[in-house]
Design a binder for these strands. Structure first.
Lengths: 201, 201
DNA sequence: GACTCTGTATACCGATCAGTATATAACAAA
DNA sequence: TTTGTTATATACTGATCGGTATACAGAGTC
């Protein structure tokens, strides 16, 4: 049965997100999936291998969608507003991920927390670089048109990324306690604030 | 000798920041400090107690400085610019912390990403609320003067906090590899971007 | 000197850690 | 039917986990 592989991945996602990689034992993962240890080690080789497979299975597909969304299409006639649509598309991808699979979003966010000497540091770095280069590439393209962004591409990529993350997390934690109202502004307000400041919302 | 207590705190700070709370064993902490386990348990009662003492010793004093810096002084004649000085003072406190004790700053940042069911969740929540209420209180005061901020106080507090954090982290990681140049803009540029958008840098 | 309090060490506890040696059941290919 | 592969379980490894029972050394007090 290949079902067990997917089952382990699914349970591992929930447990790692809830308690953190280091705090979850292999036995605990097996119990949650209803399998024994040799089964887990047969599919993933090690606890670290399981984490890598988790990232590859759930986060990598998101990054591919992000790459598609982060295509910059300059429209020279519309100086200020050609950046806005692509930032909106990118932000929307994060919001969509958080809505469709909040645990995967939290897994992605958890990379930022992972201590530098964690046993999964290599995996963490790989996926962090993946995300950073996508966002930085976007601002590099944009700065060819918007001259006053030049030299700050990496900075702005970081700012935008952390702004989107914190906004989605706020949204997520709020929906958790209060289902009926969505008082956190959607992606478009976020992009407006990022581009034109807090008085523009 | 009370020296041992301070020594344990110091070594625990370094280890927890480098490897994460869960990944560091009590024996490892004792070896680093050159003491035995009963000594550690005599002073802190438990591993969790040590973490709480760590936060109280190193992070709480920073929050007191932050409280002093976050006092909003409205100057009605100068509509837009009375918010800027206080945001700058707040941002400067974070930069100052990161410069004087980078490990403490990283400890503070690690709170943001601690898993919700971590064994230290209670401690984490306490200090997170402490920080959030300071920033939110600042924007609540500001929105009395700046009407178009009203209703977005919590949102803006979160945005500003995450923007400052990511900026300082970028600064920190950069200084780590490249000592002589400071290519990350200081706090004032950060505040400018936050208030007036990315084209204002 | 006896008595107490603070601080530290030896040696241990049961539980859990990540990982594995070995066996075997199911199934496909020969 | 034999052989090989895939997928699973029982039962185990040595190491480490957080935490503690006990003893005892030094200092101050009576």
């Amino acid at each position: 049965m290949q079902d067990n592989k997917a089952l382990i991945l699914q349970k591992a996602l929930a447990l790692f997100v809830a308690k953190g990689y280091e705090a979850v034992g292999v036995q605990e993962l097996c119990d949650a999936a209803g399998v024994t240890k040799p089964t887990l080690y047969y599919y993933f080789g090690s606890k670290e291998g399981l984490f890598a497979a988790l990232m590859q299975t759930f986060v990598e597909p998101f990054f591919r969608r992000l790459d598609e969304a982060a295509v910059y299409l300059p429209q020279p006639k519309d100086y200020y507003h050609d950046l806005q649509p692509v930032l909106l598309r990118v932000a929307d991808e994060y919001f969509a991920l958080a809505k469709s699979s909040p645990e995967v979003f939290r897994l992605l966010v958890s990379l930022n927390f992972m201590p530098p000497q964690s046993s999964c540091a290599a995996i963490k770095n790989h996926f962090q670089n993946r995300q950073n280069s996508t966002l930085e590439g976007l601002f590099l393209k944009a700065s060819e048109v918007h001259g006053n962004l030049r030299g700050r591409e990496k900075l702005l990529a970081t700012y935008f990324g952390s702004l989107v993350t914190s906004s989605v997390l706020l949204h997520l934690n709020q929906d958790q306690t209060n289902q009926n109202q969505t008082s956190v502004p959607p992606a478009s307000d976020l992009v407006k604030i990022f581009m034109h400041g807090i008085f523009s919302g």
